[in-house]
């Protein structure tokens, strides 16, 4: 009986989890030591939705990364344990599998250990990883799932890697815009097509930063949100004052359902975002030269919003 179980697990647990990657996407970044298996993804998914991994068992990853909002949140700054709030807006986790550097300032250089940020941050789950794994080691169900997924590896090693495995499966590439790119001429409405042309125009210059399959070139830029950015962004990592107020160019996939916007969630609507760019930014010393302001008619602005709405993918909705 035990033997039968073990054999069963050997086959299903080590079975590779095959990602469904759209043709126009790059290869995801998956280290050899953390290949995707069904068991790892299952463990990661359980951890992701489990409030027990926060200090007082009230906050799960899904508290701030809600599946129905493309795994983001609809408030400027989400509350962690005890209602505590940090300083950044929760990012959508769709297509995180392709990131070389994680978080808006790129501070985390591998997704495989990113989960320690929310787990340990006092404004999020507030539990030292060393304490959390002691808790998980007491739970028979988890013990068995960890064993299936990572064999004898320590829980400290396996916990963030299982969460990364689950997050790597959150891939989307089937918005109206994707279908248009893949040759369906009717996928975009005429207003959305006009908006696309504006988005790609030299005067708006959105495409200078927002390019590629997720509408980001992944560079760190200052888009002029503040004259004196209270959050140093990329400079927190590089210690270089020329990087102050720079953040990773945001993905725009699903942008219509991931309000509010910018690193601190200070802009409430797409209309406010466009107004921000139209004014040419607040002139931070590190502001990009591509933020230079422009004039749009009311209907141009509506077209641009229709285009941004065409980036919504309903796979998980």
């Amino acid at each position: 009986m035990l033997f039968a179980l073990a054999v069963f697990c050997f086959q299903s647990c080590t079975s590779e989890y095959v990602l469904d990657i759209p043709n126009h996407f790059p290869r995801p970044i998956i280290p050899d030591e953390n290949r995707l298996t069904q068991a790892r993804v299952d463990l990661g998914k359980k951890l992701f939705f489990d409030p027990n991994i926060s200090i007082d068992s009230t906050v799960s990853c899904a508290t701030c990364h809600k599946p129905e909002l493309a795994f983001s949140d609809n408030v400027s700054i989400s509350a962690g344990v005890n209602g505590s709030r940090n300083k950044r807006n929760a990012t959508s986790l769709i297509n995180t599998a392709f990131l070389r550097e994680v978080n808006k300032d790129g501070g985390v250089t591998k997704l495989d250990i990113q989960a320690l940020v929310p787990i340990e941050d006092k404004h999020e789950m507030n539990i030292p990883i060393v304490k959390l794994v002691k808790r998980l080691e007491q739970d028979e169900e988890y013990v068995s799932l960890f064993e299936k997924a990572y064999g004898n590896a320590s829980f400290i090693y396996a916990t963030p890697r299982a969460l990364a495995s689950y997050i790597r499966t959150l891939i989307q590439g089937d918005s109206a815009y994707d279908r248009y790119l893949l040759g369906d001429q009717n996928a975009l409405s005429s207003p959305a097509l006009r908006g696309k042309r504006l988005f790609e125009s030299d005067s708006l210059a959105c495409r200078n930063c927002h390019s590629g399959y997720d509408l980001t070139d992944y560079s760190y830029q200052n888009n002029g949100l503040y004259q004196d950015s209270p959050d140093f962004g990329r400079a927190l990592i590089t210690l270089d004052s020329l990087d102050r107020g720079k953040f990773r160019v945001a993905k725009l996939r699903n942008v219509a359902i991931t309000a509010p916007y910018m690193y601190d969630g200070s802009l409430r609507t797409l209309s406010e975002v466009i107004d921000h760019y139209a004014t040419g930014g607040k002139n931070h010393p590190n502001q990009s030269q591509h933020i230079k302001g422009f004039v749009l008619t009311k209907s141009d602005k509506e077209d641009l919003i229709r285009f941004l709405e065409s980036l919504t993918d309903s796979t998980y909705l």
């Binding site: 978080n103 501070g107 985390v108 250089t109 591998k110 250990i113 320690l116 940020v117 787990i119 340990e120 941050d121 030292p128 990883i129 060393v130 304490k131 320590s154 400290i156 090693y157 963030p160 890697r161 927190l236 990592i237």
Partner: peptide, 29 residues
């Protein structure tokens, strides 16, 4: 750099493994 081996991969007895109070930065490498 955490590239060859990061703090989650080290033996518990290694002082470079995760500590409590922590000596690793999670938000920064």
């Amino acid at each position: 750099s955490q590239s060859e081996m990061d703090f989650t991969e080290r033996e518990e007895t290694d002082v470079l493994a995760a500590q409590d109070p922590s000596m690793h930065w999670n938000w920064n490498t």
